[in-house]
Amino acid sequence: MSDDTFIKLSVSLDLAEQIVRAGIDKASSLSVASTIVVVDESGIIKSMARMDGAAMITVQVAQDKAYTAAGLGMATESFVSMNLKDERWLMSLWGVERVAPISGGLPITRGDRVLGAVGVSGGTFEMDAEVAAVALSVLEEQA
């Protein structure tokens, strides 16, 4: 392989759909209508579901949480707590489109490589974070 190319790892459609299904199941158990989005390593939607009754705005919020987690390679919740220490850093992101520094976005990783991310919106911040974490538990089942 030449030096002017590289190989990217990405979440597969099959895995993305499994993550979304696990998220739907968890949100249902919490009686919350959510939108669950899985994006690839570039922040492009790979799979998405808007549950019956989920507010229209949850679609964009879930997408933005997933985009943020994929782009930063960290949980959106960790990103917030880390950057609250330096409000200048957090304020600098206000003008960046699609950055959602709120709970409910988690990266999908293999080792130190980001393969994509999941974003959840529809419940409280705590519920969204819980649904996202349970959705990613399918990764542990495959290990």
Rank of each mutant, 00 (worst) to 15 (best):
L15Y: 02
I19K: 09
V96K: 10
E126Y: 04
E141P: 14
V80K: 15
I44C: 08
E87M: 13
R110H: 15
D3W: 13
A66C: 13
S81M: 14
I45S: 01
I7V: 12
A55G: 15
V99F: 07
Q63F: 14
D112V: 04
A117R: 01
W89P: 13
A49R: 09
I57G: 12
P101I: 10
S81Y: 12
L9S: 10
R110A: 14
R113K: 14
A27S: 07
G122N: 10
V11D: 02
V114W: 06
I108Q: 02
V11C: 07
D52H: 11
V80D: 14
A75W: 07
E17P: 04
T35C: 08
T109H: 10
K46V: 02
V37H: 00
R21W: 06
I44D: 12
I24N: 04
A66L: 07
G105C: 05
S92V: 05
A75D: 09
A55M: 14
A33W: 03
A54V: 05
I24K: 03
S137V: 06
D40R: 01
I24M: 05
V11R: 07
A62D: 00
I102E: 08
K26F: 01
E141Y: 09
V59S: 03
R50E: 05
V11I: 15
T124Y: 00
S12E: 07
Q60A: 12
G71Q: 03
D52E: 13
L136C: 08
P107M: 14
G53L: 01
D14Q: 08
Q142E: 15
E87V: 12
M127R: 09
A75Q: 07
T58W: 00
T109N: 10
F6A: 13
T76Q: 06
L84H: 14
I45L: 03
V131R: 00
L90E: 09
A135E: 00
S137K: 11
A22T: 03
D86M: 12
M1V: 15
D64N: 15
M48E: 11
L72A: 11
I57A: 13
E97D: 09
Q18F: 03
A33V: 03
V37N: 01
R88M: 07
